[in-house]
Amino acid sequence: MGTILELQGVSMSFGGLKAVDSLSFDVRENEIVSIIGPNGSGKTTTFNVISGLYEPDSGDILLKGESVAGLRPDQVHDKGISRTFQSLRLFSNMSVLDNVLVGMHSVTDAGLIASMLRLPKVRREEAAMRVKAREILEMFPGRFSGPRQQQPAFSLSYANRRRLEIARALASEPALLLLDEPVAGMNPMESREVMEQIKVLRDKGYTILMIEHDMHVVEGVSDRVIAMDHGVKIAEGTYTEVANDPQVVEAYLGKRAAEATA
């Protein structure tokens, strides 16, 4: 299995605060890696650095051996990393289908003149995009069927909006999918369903790096777990290894509790 993503000593600070401090880890092909950690431990900042929203102060980020550190978000996306957001960021007034079509922007190439003249080439591309988008939406059986594809995104239920965001991220068939708390705010039944869908994605060959607080989900899908605290990686390994790591217990429950369990 080849390495898809590799972080080498990535640091990112805001003013005096080191949000991420020489973080290194890697994600291998067709693997699901979860990042856990208390609030403010630098997980989302790590995501933002990987996806190009922030430039790292130092360190490098390699996607299949190629540096993507300091690239703009759209360039990072072009290289093959797509993401979802913790606070949903859909194009709320656009239709469900259009949301997915926007996700395909970087893998399609109809130009200005061709689009204006609606050349046969463009029509073909557009038709193919729609077929593909429907296929992706069908990965969530029954959720986006029929007329619902034409509804505006804001009219969807909360859980469906989360699903749509994943669908949009999948539209470009990324080499690496970043999911920022995919089951946040869902009830247990819904989160179990999303968990199953994440497993389906792995079976389809996707590589996933995700942030998650719901330990059932983390336990259920992760091949590996990385624990962070104060911007530093404090543990890495299988779910059981990490969950029993005294440092991790300390980070979540405090020092006294950690001593008690040890």
Partner: peptide
């Protein structure tokens, strides 16, 4: 070629 983020930025 971009090898070091801080230097190239």
């Amino acid at each position: 070629e971009r090898t070091d983020a801080l230097l190239s930025v």
